[in-house]
Amino acid sequence: MADLVLALIQTAALLALAPLLTGIIRKLKAWMQSRRGPPIYQPYLDLAKLMRKGSVVSEDSSWVTTITPYVCLISMVVAALLVPAFVTESLGFLGDLIVLVYLFAMTRFFTALAALDAGSTFGGMGSSREMLVSSLIEPAILLSFFTVALLTGTTSLVSVTSVIATSGASLIGPALLLAFAAFLIAVLAENARVPVDNPSTHLELTMIHEAMLLEYSGKDLALMEYSSMVKLTLFVTIAWSAFLPWGVATEITAPALALGVIVFLAKLLTLAVVIAVIESSMAKLRLFRLPNLLTGAFMLAFLAVMSYFVL
């Protein structure tokens, strides 16, 4: 029973921390660009504000626009149930790494449809580009998961985490590191970060993710924004838990848990810094240069698999 409670607490923590992570990244970026930037809790305020606003819905849109925010929210909540963050407990019997990929696909699928729903040019453009990016990155994600599955003999994320975390250093090798690198590119691509997309742009022609949300306002927009924040948090968490989970609490004792929480926060911060550095130092890639990056990720993942078998 305690493990179930822990898992739920962990999920709640992930859901609660999501806007904070976004806030931190924004703050870090501001610093690097020599701005003061908004406070790191600004995303909470934004969401709260949006939740109180009325919304305008396109007269061309249909029930797809109506249900999409809820589907996105809930699929992310369910995904959060599956991901171990600071302790190797979760509702993992519900689904494994592959299920996670499909839950993310579900969010993306509905978002892309909602983008088409209103019949706006920008929505269509976003939807079209999002599908391109996702179809190129999904094989990389699955192959990098395949690598850890090979290393641990399971696709269940909790088991992966605990196997790697308890194995000492024996599993560290080219396979794991290459897969981690491939997944990091996937984190950027799946969450509309530079160099794939620019989350802070407001020039419609260059947007991917934001273009899909153009028609949303008020509560709906809040849900969509929140879902993508949770998605980012989950991706970052998975990057650590699936590939480099050391430090996570593998047993339910107070010191282990404490260590787990601290290490987890440190890990989040590390990747936030990495993302901020990338976003401050690189420009967004042209759309048709993206395949080079994304197939690069695929090749990294494939090399990971290969080095598992060959080395």
Binding site: G92, F93, L94, G95, D96, I98, V99, A149, T152, G153, T154, T155, S156, S159, V163
Partner: peptide
Amino acid sequence: GGEVSSVS
């Protein structure tokens, strides 16, 4: 596959 993978 050594450890159990599951979906419900």
